[in-house]
Amino acid sequence: MPKDFQPGCAKPVEDSQSGKTQDAAAQAVQEKPLSSAREVSMIKVGKKAPNFTAPAYFQGKFVTVELNEYLGKWVLLCFYPGDFTFV
């Protein structure tokens, strides 16, 4: 039977904690494989923001946004875990 879960402020995704009920071999596979241990580095203040192009929803239309189009303006770029995540 599917189990209920309590929604939090992150977008609900598969919970790696549920590996508890799996056998040891399956658990070992679940432990971070080296290939996914990608180095995540934080960007530096005072340096250029990496340019990107992304699809967007903007006042009734679907548009493509490129960061470089905003040169000459102040930009606030905000990330969040997912739509409908409460806060």
Partner: peptide, 24 residues
Amino acid sequence: YGVYDDESGVETRGRFIIDPDGKV
């Protein structure tokens, strides 16, 4: 931008101020 969390597959609440020269 260093805010994507591989394990949960989502982004954390990151907020960047970018100036008119494109600098963070």
